[in-house]
Write a protein that binds this DNA or RNA. Structure first.
Length: 428
DNA sequence: TCTGGGGTCCTAGGACCC
DNA sequence: TCTGGGGTCCTAGGACCC
């Protein structure tokens, strides 16, 4: 059996751990630049605030209903996620961290489960209360024979008491018969529109479609979903593998027109990516850069341009990547546009060990590697702001908007939580 | 005026290799 | 008149996930 553990309203729950005033009140967390609503408490969902709604369209509504809006604090969420995952890993080493707030667990090697196969629900309940106690984060747990069914079970769990088990054939048919097809893992908007046009509305109905039909219209991924819905395992608990690409793109707080402002931002994004490459011992063969205006602003001239190059030597050296980034940006940047975004994508990743050198290489690679080791260790110890490439600049023009940011409670000593105990009783 | 960011997988066509 | 087969890489687009 497989368990899917999914944190409830994760970003909101992280904020609530450190700010109890947010309990039982409608709370939303915003995307970068305070642009869209990307997480909602149950109270906020009950008010009918949709996922992904632009903040400016809902500002009045939020004020009217006293909804608290917070900027996203990824430093905090990342650290809280690690705590949750470490707690899960205490139960079984066979765990796949699927996203910042979700993990699949293989229950087959857990002694209690194999000894008491009929007590999965009780096991889930205990599991859930342990995670809550240890981390402060409420989770939902779905337990089933396949990943897709475990996903279904976890959604069911969210709407009941936090735990849902699909064990028998009867459980399976019951769970799928009223499960909307658009809520299935792997069925997005395009596919669900397509299926509904053909009167396939529930997961059970989809599970009964012939394989050839599914293959034709939903590709092999659809076939896997259907098989898993029928209890046939197609998707394994996966061990972490190195990423195949690393990218970074961010909207500016304000539109930018100056080449060097774009270049400063680009250099910063390249640095972020290069750090990720070094952390997983990868080098990139291909570097891609793009620039874009704001596609929502129909009244302004639009411009989007991207260009990819193959690097002469695969690399993860920030300085070298910035140098090539500059050349590409020079090439694709056009004067006279109000740019909203610049981005970088590094692909064709290889392991450092497979590195092929170039006969005409002028860079002292050994020195570059040592330099980056020092660079990374200093920044790890004293924070990312302590040391930068000059190309990143010191300007704040392009930085994103974060007007309602909470503190880094768990990762910065200066932000550690203080608690004022106020009591009327003197000897409490 | 204001609309996120970081990923994966699949398909299909064309260029090119031997 | 009749013109193969097996493969990779690249690009672009579309779908999906959180």
């Amino acid at each position: 059996m497989i368990a899917l553990v999914d944190c409830n309203n994760f970003y909101v729950s992280c904020e609530r751990v450190f700010n109890p005033k947010l309990e039982k009140r409608p709370v939303v967390v915003l995307s970068n630049n305070d642009g869209c609503i990307v997480a909602r408490s149950e109270e906020a969902k009950a008010l009918g605030i949709p996922m992904g709604a632009p903040l400016f369209q809902y500002k009045d509504f939020l004020d009217k209903h006293h909804v608290i809006a917070l900027s996203s604090n990824y430093t905090l969420y990342g650290d809280m996620s690690e705590r949750v995952m470490n707690t899960l890993a205490e139960f079984t080493p066979n765990i796949e961290i699927y996203s910042i707030d979700e993990a699949f667990l293989d229950l087959s090697n857990i002694a209690f489960v194999s000894k008491n196969p009929d007590k999965l629900f009780e096991y889930g309940v205990e599991f859930r209360s342990k995670v809550l106690k240890w981390t402060g984060i409420p989770v939902s747990i779905g337990i089933a024979p396949t990943k897709v069914l475990a996903k279904v079970a976890s959604k069911k769990a969210k709407k009941s008491n936090g735990v849902w088990v699909i064990a028998s054939e009867e459980d399976r048919v019951n769970a799928l018969s009223d499960f909307p097809v658009e809520d299935l893992w792997g069925i997005g908007r395009a596919y669900s529109n397509f299926l509904k046009r053909r009167k396939i509305n529930t997961a059970l109905e989809l599970s009964r479609m012939p394989e050839s039909w599914v293959r034709k219209h939903l590709t092999v991924q659809g076939v896997r979903i259907v098989k898993e819905l029928n209890g046939e395992k197609c998707l394994d608990i996966e061990q972490p593998i190195p990423r195949k690409s690393v990218g970074s793109q961010k909207s500016f707080g304000e539109p930018q027109t100056d080449f060097f402002v774009l270049f400063n931002a680009l250099a910063s994004y390249i640095d972020e990516c290069a750090v990720k490459l070094r952390n997983q011992n990868s080098v990139a063969n291909i570097l891609g850069i793009f620039v874009a205006t704001n596609p929502f602003n129909k009244s302004e001239p639009q411009y989007f341009k991207s260009r990819f190059i193959r690097l002469p030597v695969p690399t993860n050296f920030t300085g070298e990547l910035i140098r090539f980034g500059y050349i590409i940006l020079k090439d694709i940047f056009k004067e006279g546009y109000r740019y909203k975004r610049v981005g970088v994508l590094l692909t064709g990743l290889d392991s450092v060990n497979k590195l092929q050198y170039n006969l005409f290489d002028k860079l002292n690679r050994e020195k570059a590697i040592k330099l980056m080791e020092v660079y990374d260790s200093i920044r790890k110890k004293y924070g990312k702001e302590i040391l930068k490439f000059s190309a990143q600049g010191i300007g704040k023009e392009w930085k994103m908007k974060q007007e309602h940011l909470s503190d880094k409670f768990t990762t910065d000593w200066d932000n550690i939580l203080t608690i004022n105990i106020q009591s009327k009783q003197k000897h409490s």
